[in-house]
């Protein structure tokens, strides 16, 4: 090991725990978020892992458009998560409604319903974009201390 530790190593040392992610995907999140978990993109190397229970999670990924039926469950999942919690929204549908702008059943702006910390644009966002968001989460954690 060299004398000087890299910036990332310092950042990683500050983290108390790995970041646990709960996915709430409406379709297109599935097609791009699951590969991120899979072997090629492998988000676990960044110290992030997908959990199956919102009560364990630190980050909630809201992937894609939300219908009225599904945003209700998403809010409930958000309420079940322990503090501190972060919501990250994937895809352009969560910002403006995206290509479903004239659909009667989807919500148009996610921030009206949940406190969104970060938007990842794209339709759907590429895994690299998700990684950039992950890097920003770490930065966010650093600032929180």
């Amino acid at each position: 090991m060299g004398k000087k530790k890299s910036k990332e190593a310092k950042m990683m040392k500050k983290l108390i725990k790995a970041i646990w992610v709960f996915n709430w995907f409406n379709s297109c999140g599935f097609a791009e978020l699951v590969p991120v978990v899979g072997s090629r993109w492998d988000m676990e190397r960044f110290g992030m892992i997908v959990v199956g229970n919102p009560r364990h999670a630190d980050v909630l990924f809201i992937a894609g458009y939300q219908t009225f039926k599904s945003i209700r469950r998403a809010q409930r999942i958000y309420a079940q998560m322990p503090e501190p919690k972060v919501v990250i929204a994937l895809g352009s549908c969560t910002m403006t409604g995206g290509m479903y702008w004239d659909s009667y059943n989807t919500i148009k702006r996610l921030e009206d319903y949940l406190p969104v910390a970060m938007y990842i644009p794209g339709c759907p966002p590429r895994p690299e974009a998700v990684f950039e968001a992950c890097a920003k989460i770490f930065k966010h954690v650093e600032e929180m201390e």
Partner: peptide, 18 residues
Amino acid sequence: FLEDWDGPPPFRKDFDWR
């Protein structure tokens, strides 16, 4: 599909989505 929907049946032509 719909929960608590109180509008007209949504796929009818006289219900203008836009």
